[in-house]
Design a protein around this nucleic acid. Sequence first.
DNA 1: CTGAAAGCGCTTACAG
DNA 2: CTGAAAGCGCTTACAG
Lengths: 336, 336
Amino acid sequence: MRAGIKQVAELAEVSTATVSHVINSTRFVSTETKEKVYRAMRELDYRPNAIAQSLRSQKSNTIGLIVPILPSDTSNFFFMTVAQGIQMTLKRYGYHMLLSNNVNEELGDEQEQIKLFNTKQIDGLIIASIAEEVGYLNDIVHNQYPVVFIDRKPVGYKGDYVLADGYGGSLEAVRQLLEKGHRRIGFITGTLGISTSNERLEGYREALAQQGVPYDPSLVMIANASFESGYLCAQQLLASGDVTAVFVANNVLTMGVVACLQEKRIRIPDDLAVIGFDDYDWTKITSPPLTVIRQPSFEIGVTAAEVMMKRIEKRSEQQRHKEYRLPTTLIERGSC
Amino acid sequence: MRAGIKQVAELAEVSTATVSHVINSTRFVSTETKEKVYRAMRELDYRPNAIAQSLRSQKSNTIGLIVPILPSDTSNFFFMTVAQGIQMTLKRYGYHMLLSNNVNEELGDEQEQIKLFNTKQIDGLIIASIAEEVGYLNDIVHNQYPVVFIDRKPVGYKGDYVLADGYGGSLEAVRQLLEKGHRRIGFITGTLGISTSNERLEGYREALAQQGVPYDPSLVMIANASFESGYLCAQQLLASGDVTAVFVANNVLTMGVVACLQEKRIRIPDDLAVIGFDDYDWTKITSPPLTVIRQPSFEIGVTAAEVMMKRIEKRSEQQRHKEYRLPTTLIERGSC
DNA sequence: CTGAAAGCGCTTACAG
DNA sequence: CTGAAAGCGCTTACAG
């Protein structure tokens, strides 16, 4: 059996209250008693039972994370990297991460997950909700812990959110294409409705507008987030005729597009210039290597976790909720 | 405030014991009392507090998972996919997953993580240990819960383990290369010492031996698991002269190798035939698409979780620990 | 400077 | 067929 606080108290010849207080530095204890307690703890290799601590203090030192990662191989490097960022920084703060990925991309599952998390007394929730409207959180969270949103801008619930500057990134990508003389520029994006896609589309339109290039809806392809879907969109876009460049606003779709171009022996960038989304190692090994808009995925995770820690520490000071928008970068390689 | 079992009991006009028993179906309760209890639970939207349940029953419904995933973008699709497999099947059994990735690849961290997990009363541990010898687990786990190893074969601790047939995969890959007439075949692997790499090297040697091709140590490059390292190994291998094919026994290294070949304008497979490891979407979009040995990563996760569930259910019957070895597949594309 | 004791929300012998 | 009560391992007012 593992030693408990009682055994430590006995061995140190103090009360359990004292032991607890030296563990948590929650009231003054004389140096000598402290020493006795430390000695006893060491001797018994004592570790406080986190479950008991949680039950008593109503605090679990655990943050719940919900992200939509499909079971496919590819999808979603992005969220996995974000999750790593979160996990690593939580660790630094002594927090744990309870991970749940919403596989079906169904809203009901998402809610169910949160209820399960509640049951585990999470101290905070970080979520990339699949919902366009997250008002339902009001009923589930009951304001009992902070919620930090990632990747998408929440509507219907007040909370901090951290995401990349998709608008700016998209603007920069399309500008780059325009500068190279392209006028018929395709745009392939994931489902509209969520803020991420919307913003990227906006950036595309704005870039065109700034150069006086008319917006042609037939050049905009809406895919669902899969390799195959990217492949098909590329195919359609090519069939439509005179496109000379394409900006793909999502990493999985980018792969599908490249696969299609390669199969059809369309040369990049000569026949078609391409800018992809997200910077991963594999974008360096296509031929030519891909020019992409980099999102700081790891940093998004780090920031989200840090914002969360700040919220938890200063629970009382009801500061306004903030938007944390991290800049994207154009990484120029050979595809445009 | 959330309702507790007490509130439910009051509303249903029964004892908390009865409520508990209907929740857990742990003793007979008459249909009508049951009904009253269900009604009360529904009305209060009651969910048992998992923390309290854990404390009392010494069971957390949580499995700890420790995998070594470096913070780099790329590394390690493999373990992430495994983690997904684990998480999805645990979910089906009503279990949670506590994830911790051992970023530094340091043994001390690994041990520290397990101690933290102990503190959280995990019911089982799934681990891809970085240690060659895991005898230290005896002191930490104290046989209090089952341990399932993944990807690597444990030495020094008895437990089930599930991994891919690296030996067979390697054998198949090198055979393929031999059949195509290659005799000078390079082999690039991660650090030796762990069973994974060792086995793959064995497969390589065995394939050569079967064809009477002498084993030449200078064709074997040992890398650490990074893109750069793969790049450098490829470079060295090329410098050494007359290699006509290479088998890269790790996915991250494969990327580095391809990057190097591309930069040096070495044509695949004409100048150098390549077989990579692990089948991911990006292996389809290199030119040419890569022939690879596929590991069933997701399935490894699923199997590990299922083995764990079985162990937990039948704690009493001390069955022998088993090896679960999943077959690999040669996926032929254009690189060899 | 420190202790005795209540209580977090459950489960589970014990008893009838 | 069901209840009263102890207890899981801690934290935290209350008290001196």
